[in-house]
Design a protein around this nucleic acid. Structure first.
Lengths: 159, 159
DNA sequence: GTCATACTACTCGGATAAGAACTGTCCGAGTGGGGTAGG
DNA sequence: CCTACCCCACTCGGACAGTTCTTATCCGAGTAGTATGAC
């Protein structure tokens, strides 16, 4: 799985702690964890294309969450970065086997493919059941000072 | 996920239908689905290293299952090909953040990492609950002629 | 006829390239704010 | 003093290289079977 997934999840989390209505630039989000700014920008663009973030150009621009954290699941973020295709690639191997028919969709017929999809569905279901708000609440319960310190860090990085 | 996973799963399944005690060469397993023989051989080597297959050199050599299909889970095969590491790479991003400590294992502390691991565990659990024997039984129920036709194919490919 | 031996063909195993995907970097288009000059 | 305009700095966005991982290929080490010759 792409490394950008980790960056995207943490960046979304940090954005959820930003001042309401405030846009945070990719440079500041990157400085938070000493990440390469231009590359993080690329990932944030993907999140914007997926409708998870809104991007604002120009001075005072940056990114902010496009909808409340309760409406953003971890699966949304993962799919935005990784793409919607399944991790297990069923290349229709049976099509090349004996008695294979080109017109058959072997993702539906192949038992191996079905089992792999079932497992992947369990993974997706788990990710879809957790929202950004859930994660944020857990973090705040364990480390109550996080929201304030995050806002402070952003303010400090504003130069 | 590597394409070799699909090849490995189907090859193991085909091996489970081979004559008991018969070793099938990588070339024949590859010809079954018109796969590149040398590369499939590489995947089969990984399965052998993982203890799923036994490899025999020389004439009349090849691969066969190292243990009965009831004792081989889909997870075993996936791990043998993909490696044991998690798909979600937690690079300890928090270590570089404010107040990060180098000695902390952030896979245990980071809430994001925990949620991702939980999802991945669900995936692994699903794969571990299905054995090669289960898949084989399902295939035989839907297509009763498969065992015989598979053996015929192997015999035909023996030249 | 039997046995030992050397040979040959066959298979796995790891070392070696080609290709694709991920990671990282750069510069241009667009935008909003602030300074400035005029009324 | 107020307003309109212009310039500039700032940010995203997509186009452009470097590196790692996946995919594919090849040749050598080892082995089992077989043919051959001697006894």
């Amino acid at each position: 799985m792409n490394e950008g997934v980790e960056w995207a999840l943490h960046s979304c989390l940090n954005l959820s702690w930003a001042e309401p209505g405030e846009a945070v630039t990719a440079a500041r989000l990157a400085a938070f964890y000493r990440l390469p700014a231009a590359y993080l920008n690329k990932q944030l663009q993907a999140l914007a294309r997926a409708g998870i973030l809104t991007s604002i150009s120009g001075p005072r621009g940056g990114f902010r969450l496009a909808r409340p954290p309760e409406k953003i699941t971890l699966l949304d973020v993962v799919v935005a970065i990784e793409g919607p295709q399944d991790a297990f690639r069923c290349e229709g191997i049976l099509r090349e086997g004996p008695g294979g028919r080109p017109e058959v969709d072997y993702r539906e017929v192949c038992v191996v493919s079905q089992e792999m999809r079932k497992a992947e569905l369990a993974w997706r279901r788990e990710l879809a059941s957790r929202t950004l708000a859930d994660v944020r609440a857990t973090v705040e319960r364990r480390h109550p000072g996080t929201p304030e310190s995050t806002r402070d860090r952003f303010a400090q990085l504003r130069t």
